[in-house]
Design a protein around this nucleic acid. Structure first.
Length: 420
RNA sequence: GGAGAGGUGGCAGAGUGGUCGAACGCGCCACACUCGAAAUGUGGUGUUCCUUCACGGGAACCGUGGGUUCGAAUCCCACCCUCUCCGCCA
């Protein structure tokens, strides 16, 4: 969420930002409520101050009964005003949470993902006569069992089998090794998190449009990304500035309901209910986030270069940014199975600078040497989303003879250099 | 899952209805002493919000949420977490 004080003092700018991002929020209502809330707060506090002084005077007073009566009356006033305040504050908060983060000045304007801007393409797409998509390749080599996945857990679940199961572990370890050398601390996270943590990281676990599985009769949900678990890791903490930036490489399973996304766009492994992922997450001082965002992008590119997969970098436009993101880049890898069989780009990673938007909700702060305390900036980026990386590997490294070459960087981790 | 103990400031640890945002100690910061350091001494040292040009004033926070009371860290209820023992179990 944004700083309410900032919204109050920069209302026009915030309103314009919401419009740019194609987010509909009743900012005027928020500003009205903000005034009412402040007035009520002041009167509640004045009443409490009076109650406190009356209560302090009761002990040993001669007119004790009169003071007690006054105290009782004040108590009723306070209860009433507090209820009024709680109501206003509830509505105020719900609007506040809908207001998106500010936007990087260089972020391209646009309404949908079609207006995202390609920054560069890296690597060459190897032309093939009749490229197979990953589903066909997996069938040919018995690598993924969608039918039995559906039997066991329903549509959009799957078993990785044989060399594919080994490749999953190889990818994870490959990413962890690379990031560990770059100074990231490896983390294996809980697959469940409390609603409080979900909300803090900007995910709504129980709304109508949620992509999150929640556990009945509990305040727990299955995480959709390790970003949630790691975001909560330092919740309610004040970090010493000399310890920042703190960089994590977190491995977790990711669970997504993917409501209403069946069809060609979610074919095969592309959009599934569960997958494994190595996620980069950084907590840093505000002046570090811009450079670290570039660093995350560099790591993502480095990983796909090592996997020898052609990709392009996309600057996500205002309308396609999620609420918490200040700026976001995606890496899209070439996939033969997309674009009606002619091949196309498919998202494989995403990195966001969330500035202090998540940190304010999660209450994670940094304290500098001079005692100055501010909210940290948080950033996240995909190192490897296993299911989509597997699509890219299968479809780009298939050979004329139908076999699949394993990228050299991965061979030491999986122990074989080809499939088939 | 059962029985018991406990959750208080950076740490450790008192406080069991008003004089408590909270003792003592450690740590940390500043100053003094010193060529410098250690030791010693003196002072300071939580967060959030409201208000004030400022000095300052006010409110809230003692695991979380309710309740009792004129008044709650302190009493009551529920929940969460930690520790010890038993049971079960990768």
């Amino acid at each position: 969420m944004l700083d309410p004080k900032y919204i109050r003092e920069h209302a026009a700018e915030v309103k314009k930002n919401c419009a740019r991002r194609n987010v509909k929020v009743d900012l005027d209502r928020f500003l009205d409520l903000d005034v009412e809330r402040l007035e009520l707060t002041r009167s509640v506090e004045a009443l409490r101050a009076e109650r406190n002084s009356v209560a302090a005077a009761v002990k040993g007073a001669t007119d004790r009964d009169a003071l007690v009566a006054k105290g009782k009356a004040l108590k009723d006033d306070i209860t009433a005003k507090e209820a009024e305040l709680a109501e206003k504050e509830g509505e105020w908060k719900s609007i506040l949470l809908q207001i998106p983060n500010l936007t990087h000045p260089e972020t391209p304007d646009g309404k949908t993902d079609e207006e995202n801007v390609e920054i560069r393409q890296v690597g060459k797409v190897v032309k093939m006569k009749d490229p197979l998509d990953h589903v066909a390749l997996a069938e040919k080599h018995d690598l993924i069992d969608f039918a039995r996945g559906a039997k066991v857990a329903g549509a959009k679940f799957y078993f990785l089998k044989g060399k594919m199961a080994l490749l999953e572990q190889a990818l994870i370890r490959f990413a962890l090794d690379y990031l560990t050398k770059e100074g990231y601390v490896a983390l294996s996270t809980p697959d469940l998190a409390k609603d409080e943590v979900l909300l803090g990281t900007g995910f709504n676990p129980r709304g109508d449009e949620t992509q999150i599985y929640s556990i009945e009769n509990s305040d727990l949900s299955l995480i959709g990304t390790a970003e949630i678990a790691v975001g909560g890791y330092h919740m309610d903490e004040i970090l010493p500035e000399e310890g920042t930036p703190i960089k994590y490489a977190a491995v977790s399973h990711c669970y997504r309901t993917e409501a209403g996304t069946y069809g060609r766009e979610s074919y095969g492994l592309y959009r599934v209910h569960q997958f494994s992922k190595v996620e980069m997450f950084i907590f840093c001082a505000p002046d570090q986030s811009e450079a670290l965002h570039q660093e995350l992008l560099r790591h993502e590119e480095e990983i796909f270069k090592m996997l020898e997969i052609p990709y392009r970098v996309v600057d996500i436009c205002t309308g396609d940014l999620g609420g918490p993101a200040y700026r976001k880049y995606d890496l899209e890898a070439w996939m033969w199975g997309r674009g009606d069989g002619k091949g196309g780009w498919g998202e494989v990673t995403s990195t966001s600078n969330c500035t202090d938007y998540q940190a304010r909700r999660l209450n994670v702060r940094v304290k500098s040497k001079d005692g100055n305390i501010q909210f940290v900036h948080t950033l996240n980026g995909t190192a490897i989303a296993v299911s989509r990386a597997l699509i890219a590997i299968l479809e780009n490294h298939q050979q004329e003879d139908g076999s699949i070459m394993i990228p050299k960087a991965l061979v030491p981790y999986c122990g074989f250099d080809r499939i088939g």
